[in-house]
């Protein structure tokens, strides 16, 4: 009864060769600059650099790109529209403000899309625990929990079918529908807790978090090219701010 959903290892793409903590550092740099800038030029330049990285993350087919970015594009459009419709400005200024906000949202969120597309969750946990001393209990516990998500999706389907088999459905009544969803969600929560408990017992039995310092079989190496990647992100930010200042558009939100 399980749907063919499986959280597999991520496909190896050129960007996968960059250490996940280098990618996270680059994201941090971009985020700070984008949050400070208030103009249209800065996010536009950053966005151009991000789009140039798409092929390296294996995102070349428009369908695949759209599948991964549609929620983001939708929310960016929403933010832009709110600014145009409800902002204090009128006419061209309003449209400019809307476009700026939309571009900022896209430029802020795209690095996350790239990270998810190119990074194996196991490598991310390895890198976080090796380089940033994130607790292994947290990193590998989260990893194990992530494996359960597709199983829960299948379980939701089963619980819904089981309720229908017992004669319980909502028909056209929205109140009944809400109650049914709430009941199914509760049953799923119970199922998730039971499964999580079993997983925790199994991890316990395998000596997880038993007080012995954990080793890492795969290791995680921060190479020179990872340093260059972060430097590249800094350079992109510098270029973006430089262009903006040169064009006279620079309009920092802080200070």
């Amino acid at each position: 009864m399980t749907a063919p959903l499986a959280l597999g290892p991520a496909r190896a793409v050129p960007l996968s060769a960059v250490n996940p903590v280098a990618q996270l550092s680059a994201i941090a740099v971009l985020t700070v600059v984008l949050l400070v800038s208030g103009d249209l030029v800065t996010p536009a330049v950053v966005l151009a650099a991000e789009l140039a990285l798409f092929p390296a993350a294996g995102l070349t087919r428009p369908r695949e790109v759209l599948r991964r970015t549609w929620p983001l594009l939708l929310s960016a459009a929403g933010v832009a529209w709110v600014n145009v419709a409800f902002g204090a400005l009128d006419g061209t200024a309003a449209w400019l403000s809307g476009a700026t906000w939309g571009l900022r949202v896209v430029a802020l969120a795209l690095p996350g899309v790239l990270l998810v597309a190119a990074t194996d969750p196991v490598r991310l946990a390895d890198a976080l625990t090796v380089h940033w001393r994130v607790s292994t209990r947290f990193a590998y516990g989260a990893l194990a929990a992530l494996r359960l998500v597709p199983l829960l999706a299948a379980e939701w389907e089963t619980i819904r079918s089981a309720r229908r088999a017992r004669g319980v459905d909502a028909g056209a009544n929205p109140v009944a529908a809400a109650r049914l969803v709430a009941g199914t969600a509760f049953a799923l929560l119970v199922a998730a807790i039971r499964r999580g408990t079993r997983l925790a017992t199994a991890m316990d039995a395998r000596g997880f978090d038993s007080g012995v310092p954990r080793t890492n079989a795969r290791g995680s190496v921060f190479r020179r090219r990872d340093g260059w990647f972060v430097a590249g992100a800094v350079a992109v930010c510098a270029a973006a701010v430089g262009t903006s200042v040169a064009l006279g558009a620079w309009d920092p939100l802080l200070g």
Binding site: P121, Y140, L143, A144, R198, L199, T201, A202, M203
Partner: peptide, 12 residues
């Protein structure tokens, strides 16, 4: 234990 899906942790 019984259920393999509640015992595997890693993706490979």
């Amino acid at each position: 234990f019984q259920d393999p899906d509640s015992q595997l942790v890693m993706t490979r």
